[in-house]
Amino acid sequence: MADQIGYSQKVMEHFMNPHNVGVIENPDGYGKVGNPVCGDIMEIFIKVKDDVIEDIRFRTFGCGSAIATSSMVTDMARGKTLEEALKITRDDVATELEGLPPKKMHCSNLAADALHAAIEDYREKQKKE
């Protein structure tokens, strides 16, 4: 990116009109990452049917890239199998958003981690049943 601080058009679109915001009551899987000290907290809720992510929602406290990556990762994971969704990396999310400023790549790019945590949670629950 030419501009080291500013966000891409794509990031701003997702920031201003984030997709898949909200909560799923009784989710099949739930993942939460981040903490108040670093300034980003994300939670992702998933509904799974036949190993496919049928519905996905998120809520995020954080900066522009935290919100945009949450929106993007939920778009990317929707309709994918759990195996496919687990392969989505932080870099994939950043690429889909047409890049993130370098300093945001680590601190505010936790959305893929939240997705993976939600899938892990789903699998843990399956084992117990």
Binding site: Y7, M12, F15, M16, G39, D40, F61, G62, C63, G64, A66, I67
Partner: peptide, 14 residues
């Protein structure tokens, strides 16, 4: 409370 400053800055800019 409960929201983050950079998001505020970006949204205000818009």
């Amino acid at each position: 409370s409960r929201i983050e400053g950079e998001s505020i800055q970006l949204a205000m800019d818009m």
